Amino acid sequence: MIWPFTSASKKDDESSRQSVAWDESLNGTDWQHYKDPRNWVPTLLVTTTVLASLKIYRSYLRRIPGATHIKPGFFRKRSLFGRVTSVGDGDNFHMYHTPGGRLAGWGWLRRVPTKKTELKNMTIPVRIAGIDAPEGAHFGRPAQPYSTDALAWLSSYILGRRVRAKIYKRDQYDRVVATVFVRRFLLRRDVGLEMLKRGLATTYEAKSGAEFGGLEEKYKAAEVKAKEKKRGMWGGEPQFFESPRDYKTRMNSEESKTNNAK
């Protein structure tokens, strides 16, 4: 009996339904559809492109706000590109990381901050590898001769400029130790080497923790040449010369004696 308001076609559909085994249903799938490259190659290409783009961004285009954010795997394998925002001493400065440089829009689409409030906790402190500049006045200690000259020269050479830092490690002061390069008159200059040539720094003399990035012989040769020509700090009488390392050792010894006497 057909109920009112129902059709015979609906009854026929219900009677035609039959249970089908799972494996029969699977075998009945049209696998030829998936064998056609036009159906899966576009999806594969999009997925691969997205994953590759994320990897490139995380490794090369993501801005690093500070030294503590640098992954350990970056040291000795990567270099950082950025603009020098301040120079603290004759051998260290702060850099605002600008990954990708102008190609990534820095300087014309993306602005590098200039105010101290904007730069706070947003820059990477860099210690120039392989050199030791004369010590300025710090923590009640008197300044060394030529410390102001070294600071003035370094400021004029790199402040406000784009530099590339080949990073090696992070020191005890959370600074990145790096060989630093800057473009001057279209030529790439090694900043540490230029300071040595001008007699504004010595090669790093600490017994432990020294880092030259494979340039130790080149640096020492530049130091010897500057010494022979009496450039910068080498211009005075040799008997009165005190290297930055000797100065720090003497200051530490005097402060230790003073503290023990109290």
Rank of each mutant, 00 (worst) to 15 (best):
W3C: 12
D13G: 02
E14W: 09
S16K: 14
W22R: 08
E24Y: 06
L26I: 04
D30Y: 09
K35H: 11
D36C: 05
R38E: 08
L45S: 09
T47N: 06
T48C: 08
T48F: 10
S53R: 06
K55S: 14
I56E: 12
R62V: 15
R63L: 05
G66A: 12
K71F: 07
F74M: 13
R76I: 00
K77N: 15
R83H: 03
S86R: 14
F93E: 01
G101C: 07
A104R: 04
G105K: 09
P113C: 08
T114W: 00
K115T: 12
K115C: 01
E118A: 15
G136H: 05
A137C: 07
H138G: 01
F139N: 14
F139E: 13
R141Q: 11
P142W: 10
Y146Q: 07
T148V: 06
A150G: 10
L151D: 01
Y157E: 11
I158A: 01
G160I: 07
V176L: 02
V180T: 13
L186I: 15
E194G: 02
G199E: 01
E205W: 04
K207W: 08
F212P: 02
E228M: 09
G236K: 11
M251E: 14
S253A: 11
K257F: 05
T258W: 11
